[in-house]
Design a protein around this nucleic acid. Sequence first.
RNA 1: GGAGAGAUGGCCGAGAUGGUCGAAGGCGGUCGCCUGCUAAGCGAUUAAGCGAGCAAAACUCGCUUCGAGGGUUCGAAUCCCUCUCUCUCCGCCA
Length: 430
Amino acid sequence: MARGGSTMLDIKYVRSNPEVVEEALVRRGARVSLDEFLTLEEQRRARLVEVEQLKNLRNVVSEEIARLKKSGQNPEDLVLQMRDTSLRIKQQDEQLREVESALEQILLEIPNIPHLTVPVGNSEADNPVVRKWGEPANFTFTPRAHWDIGESLDILDFARGSKIAGARFTVYKGWGARLERALVNYMLDLHTEKHGYQEIFPPFMVNRQCMIGTGQLPKFAEDMFHIENTDYYLVPTAEVPLTNLFREEILDDHQLPLKITAYTACFRAEAGAAGRDTRGLIRQHQFNKIELVKFSRPEDSYAELESLTADAEQVLQGLGLPYQVINLCTADLGFSAAKTYDLEVWLPSFQTYREISSCSNFEDFQARRANIRYRPGPKAKPQFVHTLNGSGLAVGRTVAAILENYQQPDGTVIIPEVLRPYMGGRERII
RNA sequence: GGAGAGAUGGCCGAGAUGGUCGAAGGCGGUCGCCUGCUAAGCGAUUAAGCGAGCAAAACUCGCUUCGAGGGUUCGAAUCCCUCUCUCUCCGCCA
């Protein structure tokens, strides 16, 4: 396949096990018929063989022409003959390219195949809870929503956020802004100093190729902010720049598992979310997030998923926020993921757990699209790595969780102990 | 934004007048020899993708790839056009 001919599934695997693939995709509710794909793939190989034979002829005869010329003979008739051959090559190449691009269109829109440990389900209601940590506090009063707390403490300004930008934008003020910054630093310090991730500070805009690499494009263009008249997209998550850091590269075996983390702002158009979570910090067009990304050997990737999830959980535990871990079922699994654990933090005003982190193993889905490989041994052929990532954590939602879980009857908010060094030693927002 | 230079294999780097150039040479890597050990030295080897053959690995053969795309030509790393990126100088700027 042509360069940049990124494919999500292994063509050879699809070709030899179409029923397995089709069945797996049905389980996750993707309506995909592989018939068209298989027909095109058949065509592609037939044409490829044809055109390669013609090219071989051209190469051989061209050498012959050179030899004749050198020995002073006239290759006129061979040249004439090749003129025709070249024309045919051009035409056939053209047709081959059409088949390939049709094939690629299909492949790029096929989601990943769920791992065997992913429960089959019909909706998010079928996501099993894997474990819970912490006890939701018993309030002696009716807990207020974080937007009320934030406004009365004058640390969140929703009205001015919409004035200067629009709906789903928020201004943080004073200790609110400081809390946001404290969380960013606390999380980065934890992951770099305790969990062994290397800190990265990437661009907040990336080109289209990155978006294809991690699977946001071509299918989910409406979820992203695209800078007009450019090839730039605002990053919807640091997963995109971090995973694409090693696009088109071959890593050394000893570099794996490669663990990196970054703070970035994240930008999401939230198309199709009209009317959902319109108040507060839960669903914004711009929010901050610390992301964890790993590149792993295939055989280690599920162990790495567990430890990555644990790394994200450590943040919540450090902050003393009750949460649960759920295993996303086939119906709820994201497009690129083979398996995902969501961490859901307890929000008292909602009387429910809300997503605050999503930790996924993509297996080689993104690695294929982005062409990220490693060399298992000194002379071994390069293989696709497995990529993983998870939020560690979404900062805005963490602020919401802290305000709600640590609110006091007098309207103040206790600052979790681990954050106090980052908050100038303060114990409370008043 | 203006002017100029450049982009070649893991890295560095050569490649007038287009024709065994997938690409000299060096470094690095691997294997072997030599050596009491190390260093040095000697020899060999060292790109990727795709396809065909094979049950498959090994292997064999073919095609493609010298920043990307297009053009000229029987034939392009080499000539022409467009784009991208990098570097230098000037201007501007946090």
